[in-house]
Design a protein around this nucleic acid. Structure first.
Lengths: 390, 390
DNA sequence: CCCACTTTGGCAACAGTGTTGCGGAAGTGC
DNA sequence: GCACTTCCGCAACACTGTTGCCAAAGTGGG
């Protein structure tokens, strides 16, 4: 289109950027772009030329950026590709132990802490009983102790401890991600208003990020899925549906975790799918969660899956997502009927709209899914996939 | 947090930017930021200092940028603020007739074309009968003729015509925004695969952007709402629910129009809210659209509003949106019962979750809402609110 | 009326970005 | 051995926003 003013105004960058941008920000952004591509490339690595093609940067710019990143120890040369008639390409890989992140999953009765490397792979796992019903200060100390135990094996100043970027914490909602404050965690109202993020950051002396368990899981899936180009527009969209004690969802839209203004997004269990249906614990009628859990409780897995499928189809239609991932204890105990049942509803919907069916899969990672994802709350900013931990 | 590498990696910019960024892109982004703030400031205008505070840019950077924008004729000085003890601030305003955009709403039986200035206010309106059932080439010529008629009063090279950025076209879905191709427009399958965007661009010699009618309306509401900071994170989220011949939605999340990968997002009418309910034209059962239209048809507006409210509550819960806007012929014919009915369901939900009720309003702009919004498909990129028209 | 003070905003020098042009390095294939 | 291809670094460059400084343009007290 005709440039709005000399120099051209509407460039690709404009549409998706929030604040003011200066040179350091620009450098950080492009560096993150390169790192993200290297992350996606995984063990294969990527050459300078491939990075240039993948990011849209000039080969020369990629050279400068990789040089800087090498200086910081984040990337390293890793062999060469076979020549295609000229000088062979140098392959670069992420140095996975250059930085670490702690992922902490605080569940109702159990705590899982993982120490993850830059690629998100766990190098240490700590699991312990945990009581969300305990007084906040006590529970906080338990959580802090778990993190310390995880980091203890390494002397400060050397090894992982030196490169720990921070701690990502995942809890049952509701909570507020931005302020790091818990709300009336379902079943445990005494947490309401507790500033978990700052309290834990104070005890550990590390940056802390807080999010809902379902969001952490979805973020982890978004980054570990291997696929997906850089964040922002062009990334894939999917929903992680978690069926356990309750029913919740984590939404990744255009490659970015979507939380909503009050971290309330993904409230999936109380979607009404049966007008004036059976009463739900929340006070409404015909909620997905009530119907689904009731069916599961009476052993009617097929019906539970069908109801869940209707909810998934609603969600898939409303948000035009690319895939659905199922997880949570109830699903993982017997995955296939759920995968098949939800898939059937989505396939039927695709048949009515001439579209391709939205694929359904079950989450990998098992019980550690949320904890792994929590680590990504800290890792993702490195790759430009999330706002930085403050 | 500790910088990932010297110079600091995770900066605010990283999280929300998609492609590679270079200096021109950075300049365009910051210029768009300033323009967007001036747009939001409206008639009041903004001083350099206020722009600096609002954008996060340095006062000096703002000076440079406003100087460039003045050179391009996009902004102009507009008086001074009273002094507060020193040199008074110079007020800047957007030059509303610096550029124009055409908004074209192609509905089933009527066509609306508006010529909008930089602020999105209409300076000319053209309305004509239109038949989506006609052969594409014929309908296309009608549409092109309407645009030419709208632009005719001004001689080429002077006035609006010289500054027309492009044409935004809004149609009933489904369609593909990215490629500009129509799909099986409900009730008019002969459009399937028609490259409307490129065909119209070829005839008019102007850039064209295509989108769903509900998306255009939502975009217009997002930009004309007056409020809302810059795009990206931090913007408001809302849903525009359109009840007319059918039922659809336009979603604005974090200040950005959300379309989904295949422009399929906002498919609201076929959300199932009654398991095994009455059959819908789509082949499914218990769809919102079927229930809502049936109630409206039998004159039971209260029930129609209640059903719509259940859908709105589902949506508000899933996406944690800030407000709901109702529109479409059926609603506009008798707005209050719908506003009240939907509001009641949302208020009941808020009561159950200790939250504030999601406010409901009816769309301003009446029958011209979609056409006005279509113009914003072209205007929004100027303010960094949407991907540029190619 | 004058003068001290406050605030705005332009000028010039600056650090640092990605880009361009070019040439050396390191392979392949005839 | 030689021509060719490809990778990649160096140096000069255009341009960004930033910093330090100072002139311009007001207010308000003596």
């Amino acid at each position: 289109m005709t440039p709005v003013f000399p120099g051209g105004l509407p460039h690709g960058i404009s549409a998706s950027l929030s604040g003011a941008a200066n040179l350091p920000a620009l450098r950080g952004h492009n560096a993150a772009l390169v790192l993200d591509l290297l992350r996606a490339a995984g063990g294969t690595g990527a050459s300078r030329t491939e990075l240039a093609e993948g990011t849209g940067l000039t080969p020369q710019a990629v050279s400068k950026i990789t040089a800087r990143l090498r200086g910081a120890g984040l990337v390293a040369e890793a062999g060469r590709r076979p020549s295609t008639g000229g000088k062979p390409r140098t392959v670069w890989r992420l140095v996975r132990d250059a930085r670490y992140a702690v992922g902490l999953h605080l569940d109702r009765d159990e705590l899982t802490a993982v120490l993850a490397d830059l690629l998100g792979d766990p190098v240490a796992v700590h699991r312990a009983p945990f009581d969300l019903g305990a007084p906040p200060e006590h529970a906080l100390e338990t959580a802090a102790g778990a993190v310390r135990a995880l980091l203890a094996p390494t002397a400060p100043g050397t090894g992982p401890h030196a490169g720990v970027l921070g701690v990502g914490v995942a809890c049952p909602g509701p909570l507020e991600h931005r302020s790091g404050v818990l709300r009336r965690v379902t079943g445990f109202p005494h947490w309401d208003g507790f500033p978990l993020r700052d309290a834990l950051a104070g005890r550990l002396g590390l940056p802390v990020a807080l999010d809902k368990d379902t969001n952490a899981a979805a973020l982890g899936l978004a980054l570990r899925g291997g696929n997906g180009p850089a964040g922002g527009h062009g990334g894939e969209s999917f929903a992680y549906l978690h069926l356990g004690t309750g029913l919740g969802a984590g939404l990744v839209l255009d490659g970015t975790l979507y939380r909503g203004a009050r971290t309330g997004a993904g409230e999936f269990g109380h979607q009404v799918v049966q007008l004036d249906g059976p009463e739900c614990g929340c006070g409404d009628r015909g909620c997905l969660e009530a119907l689904c859990l009731a069916a599961a409780a009476r052993g009617d897995t097929a019906e539970a899956a069908r109801v869940l499928g209707v909810g998934a189809a609603n969600l898939a239609g409303l948000l035009d997502i690319d895939r659905v991932v199922l997880g949570g204890r109830t699903v993982l105990a017997d995955p296939e009927p759920y995968r098949a049942g939800v898939g059937a509803v989505l396939a039927a919907r695709a048949g009515r709209t001439d579209g391709r069916p939205v694929p359904v899969s079950t989450a990998p990672g098992g019980a550690r899914l949320v904890a792994d994802g929590a680590a990504h709350l800290v890792l993702a900013p490195v790759f430009g996939r999330l706002d930085p931990v403050r």
